[in-house]
Design a protein around this nucleic acid. Structure first.
Lengths: 340, 340
DNA sequence: TTGAGGGATGAAATCCTTTTCAGCGGCAGG
DNA sequence: CCTGCCGCTGAAAAGGATTTCATCCCTCAA
């Protein structure tokens, strides 16, 4: 009992005009008011809804934009998504979210979909720095903005935070609080965010290496930006002959795992210092409260969307990279080392 | 410098065959192996990627399914989304996520997009019980599954949890723990989940009304399923001449707000009992640990996707509603009232 | 009065695939 | 040897909108 599909032709017939005129009514062409009205009425009476596929096919461009994120279960990215949506809200564009799950294959599939569906634009927080290929999109003239993470060599606008600086400030804070054996649990080697946060950590340690601070990479671990990865890495660090007395964790979810692992062995902050890059969700409920590098996730999304919209309107301005500031929020978890 | 678009015609010409044959190669028609191979090679050489719009237009059905959820910042829904994705993963379908933000207008827009883009199917956790109109989709024969929330009168398959029963069990637990003035903070009046969880609460109180238990609606509040709403509602309850000694909160995010509001006035569980319908994210870090009705969010999504796929394969079976069980996880926050 | 200019309109081309249909050739069975 | 069937193939239609182009008609200026 499938309802018959109402096309522009049906409306045209009902209103006694040509399909071209109907199209013009809906797209702002020149039509005499009387005719326009009768078209409107006919469309309403028939329950006409334009076929977006046909329209996009003809126009060579659809009216949805894709937002591709690597982890939908990370509040950082969902907040970013809200930023994108709110910015798109003011236009007639719809945003669809694609979860690449930190998997370059899935990501590639979604990029193919975006291309094949002629999406109006793409915002991507790429799963991998090297394997993400935005070439086909940019070659076809589809506006693309990289957000948070930066694919190598890509000729696209970008919005990110000052990862390296943030990591450096964070680590320096731990030093100043008196910690001396500071570990770093960072993300997968492929991601730009992992590498830069780690670079900041190294820089801070390097410039403090006189005062008995360990500055080799014995305390560095790579994990997967997820809770389990953080937990495993922390367990590994705790098993060292001389475990660290503080840890700089390169993302929020891994920090959850780290806190769990510490709880297991009865050690809690600030005895062991814990500093998270990115706020832990519902930080207000965590005890002790957590020192964190706060990220402007919402603004990241919002700015990316603005850049994309601007580019879609055909701004010919040169490619730009916007870097947003992070802020260190000092709380209880880094109050200073336990005095043995 | 937009790259020329490679169409099936270009491939056909390069391979010395007709477009129809190229299409058959990609869609599993009958083609002699030799020819098929030369088509494959030509396609690869030209970097051919099929235009999904044209394909969908012709087939009257695209290969993406839409998942419409009311709050992308709620871990419950993101976990549900993972369930949907994992189920769809085994097919060639892509999932796109749409965030209606508990806003019936946004939701309507996304439903229009789903219809206009001829999406292969739709899974929806509807923003409103009454205003969500799935009619156009079902009329056109698009498979639809309602998940978590149930739109009224809709002729669709559904997957949800035993909200009413869960609410009743939860409230009964609070009674058994010794609480006597039990409040309920539920969601917006329009949502089925709000109403049924509240109904469970009422049922439990009703059957216990002999033992000095307050059972009118003085302790019932409607909020918006968000953190702020929970906070406001709890403040309101605390301002009563005789504040409640326990509260049953109908979703996880509102519970965060409730805990915040309690913290502000220096009252903590279990002195005031707190029971959350739906786990709070990263519950392991919350002190005291939180008693909650645990929801099978992932399975909800997974089951909904399975139902949808089954329906898309043309199963003519009658409409079904799958109800999944909730489980009460008893922890510290409901250990018993403060003894004044 | 005539020509230029311009707004409104419809026919038809266009976007790119899929799918129907008819034709062709080969093979097996009568 | 003929018929029927089947597999492979290409031409062309179909899907539903937008857009170009030509036409018509009207107004205004010379």
């Amino acid at each position: 009992m499938r309802a018959q599909v109402v096309t522009i032709h049906d409306v045209a017939r009902a209103a006694g005009v040509s399909p071209a005129t109907v199209s013009r009514v809906f797209n702002g062409g020149n039509v005499t008011p009387a005719r326009a009205q009768s078209v409107q009425e006919a469309a309403a009476a028939l329950g006409f809804a334009p076929n977006r596929l046909a329209r996009s096919l003809r126009k060579q461009r659809s009216s949805v934009i894709a937002l591709i994120i690597p982890d939908i279960e990370n509040p950082f990215f969902t907040s970013l998504a809200r930023g994108v949506e709110d910015a798109a809200q003011r236009t007639s564009l719809s945003v669809v979210l694609c979860n690449s799950d930190e998997d370059t294959d899935k990501e590639r599939r979604y990029l193919e979909v975006a291309l094949g569906e002629q999406m109006a634009g793409v915002i991507v927080a790429s799963a991998s720095r090297d394997e993400t290929d935005l070439g086909p999109l940019t070659a076809r003239g589809v506006p693309v903005v990289a957000v948070d993470r930066r694919p190598r060599d890509a000729e696209v606008d970008a919005v990110r935070v000052d990862d390296r600086h943030g990591g450096e400030v964070a680590t320096r804070h731990l030093l100043q609080a008196g910690y001396r054996r500071i570990a770093c649990i960072t993300g997968p080697a492929g991601a730009s965010t992992s590498e830069e946060r780690l670079a900041g950590y190294r820089a801070a340690l390097h410039s403090a290496r006189r005062d008995g601070v360990t500055a080799d990479d014995a305390y560095v671990r790579h994990a997967d930006f997820r809770v389990e990865g953080g937990r495993a890495a922390m367990r590994d660090l705790l098993a060292l002959p001389e475990p660290p007395d503080a840890v700089f964790v390169a993302n929020n979810l891994m920090t959850i795992g780290v806190l769990d692992a510490l709880g297991e062995v009865g050690r809690t902050p600030p005895g062991v210092g814990v500093l998270s890059f990115g706020d832990v969700p519902w930080a207000s409920l965590v005890r002790p409260s957590l020192t964190a590098v706060e990220l402007p996730s919402y603004e990241l999304g919002r700015t990316a969307a603005d850049l994309l919209l601007q580019r879609m309107e055909g701004s010919g301005s040169p490619l730009q990279t916007v870097v947003l500031r992070t802020t260190l929020q000092i709380r209880e978890s880094t109050a200073g080392p336990a005095t043995d």
